[in-house]
């Protein structure tokens, strides 16, 4: 695929200065997207997000955890704040749908950990 001079200039203008071959521009984008997709679907990445979520919940303080023992809490992985909490997961899910939160969330049942089982 050929890239016009104007689109090349635009790409430089928005901060994506490309130093490779002029005709490689589309494959450069494709490579970057593939890399991003692989990164975003990586299981290790999911595990590290769970680790982060667990640390955030543990860091909410002893008083909070004691007060909310058995409750389901949704914590934002971006800001670390508690987005929603409820006694039932069904209700928490409803709250999350209603709020339409855009941040990535981690959900845990305080004092229990896993929220479901597959036996």
């Amino acid at each position: 695929m050929m890239v016009t001079q104007s689109s090349w200039s635009h790409a430089e203008g928005v901060g994506h200065t490309f130093r490779g071959d002029y005709h490689d521009f589309p494959s450069y984008i494709e490579r970057w997207l593939n890399e991003f997709t692989r990164w975003s679907s990586n299981d290790d990445d999911l595990e590290s997000k769970v680790e982060l979520g667990k640390r955030l919940v543990a860091g909410l303080g002893e008083a909070f955890l004691k007060r909310n023992y058995g409750w389901y809490v949704a914590v934002s992985l971006d800001s670390g704040r508690v987005v929603a909490r409820s006694k039932s997961l069904e209700n928490l899910n409803r709250l999350l749908i209603r709020k339409g939160v855009e941040e990535e969330l981690y959900v845990e049942r305080v004092g229990y950990g896993a929220i479901a089982s597959m036996l």
Partner: peptide
Amino acid sequence: RYVKHKVISTINLADGSEVP
């Protein structure tokens, strides 16, 4: 990967492990 608003959590498996 196609779902924009998804939540991360864990579930227990029969072997006792907890998976994200």
